[in-house]
């Protein structure tokens, strides 16, 4: 039989995961109780969110109980590295989108791809076919697909 293990509890990831899940549910329920929710036809707009919050709290409690009994996933490795890549990607993606309006479609997509190739490749100039030629060709194909064929209503930049 599994025995509750309280001493190492604070080192287990799922203890915190459960706590996080419960707090999201609690905040949500408080919002429904005190926030500005208008009534609506048939149960009202708050019924389903309320159900979801209650489910979250229950699931969180179960996750914590499981953590107490030693069933927990490992702390993620390199969480920080992955998250910072995520944020960087977010920034690059938004930057590219913004640049499309300023510089134009072809230029920004090409710069993004070449830049990414340089970032991810060691000694990028030695690998020039893959860091420069491939992105340029890819840009051409993407341009054909999105601008010529699909005709997306992108804001126009000063260049292409």
């Amino acid at each position: 039989m599994l025995k509750p293990q309280f001493t190492t509890l604070l080192t287990r990831q799922d203890f915190y995961t459960g706590l996080g899940v419960i707090s999201v549910g609690t905040v949500g329920l408080l919002d429904i109780a005190y926030g500005n929710w208008r009534p609506g036809p048939g149960l009202g707009p708050h019924a389903f969110p309320q159900l979801a919050y209650i489910t979250l709290i229950c699931a969180g409690v179960v996750i914590m109980i499981e953590a107490v009994f030693g069933k927990s996933d490992q702390f993620p490795e390199n969480l920080r590295a992955v998250l910072s890549t995520g944020v960087a990607l977010l920034a690059i993606g938004m930057g590219m989108f913004w640049a499309i309006g300023k510089l134009g479609f072809m230029v920004s997509v090409c710069i993004t791809l070449v830049g990414a190739g340089f970032l991810l490749t060691r000694d990028p100039l030695r690998h020039w076919p893959s860091t420069i030629v491939v992105p340029v060709v890819a840009t051409g194909v993407i341009w054909l697909l999105f601008v010529k064929l699909i005709n997306v209503p992108l804001p126009r930049g000063i260049l292409f």
Partner: peptide, 18 residues
């Protein structure tokens, strides 16, 4: 992946927009 991933990313962004 170092070459393919950025392209797939750009495609995903543009595809979702389109």
């Amino acid at each position: 992946s170092r070459i393919l991933l950025p392209i797939v990313c750009v495609l995903a962004i543009l595809g979702t927009f389109a």
